[in-house]
Design a protein around this nucleic acid. Structure first.
Lengths: 189, 189
DNA sequence: ATGATTTTGTGACATATATCAAATGAAATC
DNA sequence: GATTTCATTTGATATATGTCACAAAATCAT
């Protein structure tokens, strides 16, 4: 098995031991992608059968609000990229785009998901993926409601310092829910 | 099986048929609660092994920010109540409190969750619960980032009109991220 | 390297919302 | 039914952040 696939599978199987058979079944629905900066993975309004796991690189998600991009999250190494909306046959609300040249694993969710009804390990594996994602969402909501702009900035700077090296401040500002001008002024202190 | 338990189980097993044995296993970890307005289900900072399903009534979740309550969500009939943080042995960030006298099903997550490694139906059942929850969170984040205050108010009024009959406007205002004074002024139009 | 494009920073002003205070209205309690 | 408590509305002012405009700095492409 490809060592990159192994990394993805290990990341989500800490609570159970997968048989070789199950690993092979999962790998059947994976592939490795090398894509360049600005490449669009998932386009707003379109349906999409894949999720992605970042091996190397940086990805952002945004939607348009009155013609202005509102960034909703960023993914770096070992993060998942995608939207549950998609896995439930709904069109994506967001556009997902590469911020750096990246190596990704694509996961064919449409084909992998039905296996959860016949393979308990796959069911638990998918469970782990969704649960980590939901925990991430919970954290994000708490973060957005709990803090004022300055605190959000300081916490993000503390928790995810790599973001500030790799993601333009314009994107980070809109992620924090403020304009780039305001972020620039906060940073001046 | 109690008809209320049936309602809970049916709600999360639309994609699979559960055997009587599985249903019984799930029911072993359920119980019915009748509790009064203002009762606190889960207290901030404390650990907690239970989630709840609202049969009848209204529940709110909030945390304290500089001594002021910030309401994070409301649950009515057929909604789940709880925090994934808890199911992962972390202390709750939020306090969950009844807004009306309510009938709830309590679910002992701590005991139910381990069964997902031996019973595939339970694994898929838990999957359905978490997935619905994650979809709800995705929707909530989109809602909070996409809209300005007036739009949020109008959409909430359109999508969840019952909230405005049953939940005090003070709570709804803080849920929308504005003060009760501002909400009152928005409504004046 | 050099110019072009993108990103970040600074200033002046406008505006939505918060804050503080008080009045009115509704609901719960005795 | 009267009284207390809680929820909502309205007003006057303060403040943080947005908007618009432009300059400086950094990054990219030829």
């Amino acid at each position: 098995m490809d060592i990159l696939y192994q990394r993805f599978i290990d990341h989500y199987s800490s609570s159970q031991q997968l048989t070789d058979h199950t690993k092979a079944e999962i790998c059947n629905h994976l592939s490795i992608l090398h894509l360049n900066k600005k490449h669009v993975l998932i386009k707003e309004i379109q349906r999409h059968d894949f999720a992605y796991f970042v091996i190397k690189g940086a990805v952002r998600s945004y939607f348009l609000k009155d013609g202005i991009e509102v960034n909703t999250w960023f993914a770096l190494e070992n993060d998942m990229v995608g939207s549950l909306q998609n896995f439930n046959d709904k069109p994506s609300k967001e556009t997902i785009e590469l911020v750096e040249n990246s190596t990704l694993i694509s996961i064919n969710i449409k084909k992998l998901k039905p296996l959860m009804f016949s393979n308990i390990q796959i069911s638990n594996f998918i469970n782990a993926v969704i649960e980590e994602y939901a925990l991430f969402l919970e954290e994000k909501i708490y973060f957005s409601q709990m803090m004022n702009s300055i605190d959000k900035y300081l916490i993000l700077l503390d928790k995810e310092p790599q973001l500030f090296q790799r993601i333009p401040l314009t994107y980070i500002a809109s992620f924090l829910g403020i304009t780039r001008e305001t972020l620039s002024r906060l940073r001046a202190k």
